[in-house]
Amino acid sequence: MDTTLHKAAGIILPPDLLHLSHRQESPENPVSLTKEQVQHIATLARLQLEDRESDDVVEKLSRIVDFVDQLQAAPTDDVLPMAHPLNMSQRLRADEVSETDQRDFVQQNAPSTEGGYYLVPKVIE
């Protein structure tokens, strides 16, 4: 039943952030990301930013985004996107059970377990 709850964990950019204007600005006048936008991206990526990091992140992330913005100038009509350096197709493996139980060994790396379960703060729906 929990798979049905997945979407609760995702978050989207609020509509006002979806209409960012910086790409419409000229490259000579790069527009920085706002602190709110950056905070939103950080939330989406599940990264807590300390207040002291925040300004630095906003500034550097803006520079990176402005830098990669130069791609917009490349003419790419009719160019197929390239997801992969190899022009190959997926190999398939036979449907065989090849793994054995390693739970106790593997859970030595786990910060918190009980009765074979991994523990997380209670998931509230």
């Binding site: 929990d2 074979g116 379960y117 523990l119 997380v120 703060p121 209670k122």
Partner: peptide
């Protein structure tokens, strides 16, 4: 498919079975 979360029996935690 995803794993399963078990919400009862772990106090303030949920247990995850993958």
């Amino acid at each position: 498919d995803a794993g399963k979360s078990v919400h009862a029996g772990f106090g303030k935690s949920s247990g995850i079975d993958l």
